[in-house]
């Protein structure tokens, strides 16, 4: 059962390939793309998958082209990007805190972004774009606060989780206060935003997300080998020559940015960041942060959840956040029960 293959070129390039992890990643990517095609075809005006693909390749008729390229494609792309960002952000946070609970949902980043969005909605009655900016700012401020509060000769796992839970509680209280202050129209808008939804997302949301991913993904991957060493504890990684503090700072900042921008685009879609890395790890059965597999898992999960929410609950769609919340909650319970059986909690 030797699953590692070394790939070497005469020029001195060499990588080690975990065959199973690679296969899982490719499979997840295929699932995400298939779900996207199916999702694009779903709606008041159903389009067969073959037509969707033909239209995406630029050979559809004008009517389908409008529906696919202008209405549904951006929404699906936002879903893919948000899912990928949440999956990657969650994997990074869980690896840095060495704790499956150390994910952005639990640490209060989602709540922080919500506080930013609510402030804009309730106090300034801002536009959708302003709400997104508010959410981004809220997430960044919360991430910064957690980092500063958890800082003590380096951020350590349990400390990060505990501080995050504390921050999350405070921010939730602030959110409650903001909601009680708001009038009924703003409150309704706020609640829809807080559930997390992909409704009405268009190209304006796609580009910033895509740009951010294009910058952050190479940065994260370049630091991922150091992160893999950090699983063995700070001392071992220092001994192996990893610049632990620098790697941690770069990766935490990237994770906060990914999570905050995903939340700004789709609202706090719950539990994807928590579950995607854990599911990916169980599928690849590979130690290490499984960053790329988590990213593909996040994208596949979110798009599938969106399809489920549209399909099962009809055209007047249930926000995707409700579906991921239900799925994630069940998963979290299962995780806690199995961890308890394994004697780890």
């Amino acid at each position: 059962m030797k699953t590692n293959r070394a790939v070497r070129t005469p020029g001195g390039l060499s990588v080690r390939l975990d065959v199973r992890a690679f296969a899982v990643t490719v499979l997840l990517l295929a699932v995400a793309l298939t779900a996207s095609v199916v999702l694009i075809g779903t709606g008041d005006f159903p389009i067969p998958a073959a037509d969707v693909i033909r239209t995406l390749l630029g050979e559809g008729d004008a009517g389908q082209e409008f529906i696919v390229n202008e209405l549904r494609l951006p929404r699906v792309l936002v879903g893919l990007l948000v899912g990928a960002s949440l999956g990657l952000g969650g994997a990074l946070f869980q690896a840095i805190s060495r704790n499956p609970l150390g994910s952005p949902d639990v640490l209060g980043l989602g709540q922080g972004a919500t506080a930013g969005a609510l402030t804009v909605i309730v106090l300034f009655s801002g536009s959708a774009n302003e709400v997104a900016l508010g959410a981004l700012a809220g997430g960044l401020v919360t991430g910064f606060a957690i980092y500063v509060l958890a800082w003590k000769r380096g951020v350590h796992g349990y400390r990060l989780v505990l501080v995050g839970i504390g921050v999350s509680a405070i921010v939730t209280a602030v959110n409650g206060y903001l909601l009680t202050k708001s009038d009924i129209v703003d409150a309704a808008r706020a609640v829809v935003w807080m559930t997390g939804s992909l409704d009405g997302r268009d190209w304006d949301q796609v580009w910033p997300l895509l740009a951010l991913c294009a910058v952050l993904l190479p940065l994260v991957l370049a630091n991922s080998r150091g992160l893999k060493m950090m699983e063995m504890g700070d001392d071992v990684s220092y001994a192996l020559g990893v610049r632990v503090e620098r790697v941690r700072l770069v990766l935490m900042l990237s994770a906060v940015l990914l999570t905050a921008s995903a939340t700004a685009a789709a609202g706090p879609v719950s539990f994807v960041a928590l579950t995607a890395p854990q599911l990916a790890r169980r599928l690849t059965r590979s130690p290490g942060p499984n960053l790329v597999a988590s990213l593909c898992m996040g994208a596949a999960l979110l798009v599938s959840a969106d399809w489920v929410s549209q399909r099962a609950f009809g055209a007047d769609q249930l926000p995707v956040g409700v579906v991921t919340g239900v799925l994630g909650g069940v998963y979290l319970l299962w995780l806690l029960v199995t961890e308890r059986r394994a004697g780890r909690i």
Binding site: A6, R8, G12, L13, S14, V15, R16, A222, R225
Partner: peptide
């Protein structure tokens, strides 16, 4: 390194 990840 980034390019030399697992040599003989």
């Amino acid at each position: 390194g980034l390019l030399r990840q697992w040599s003989a």
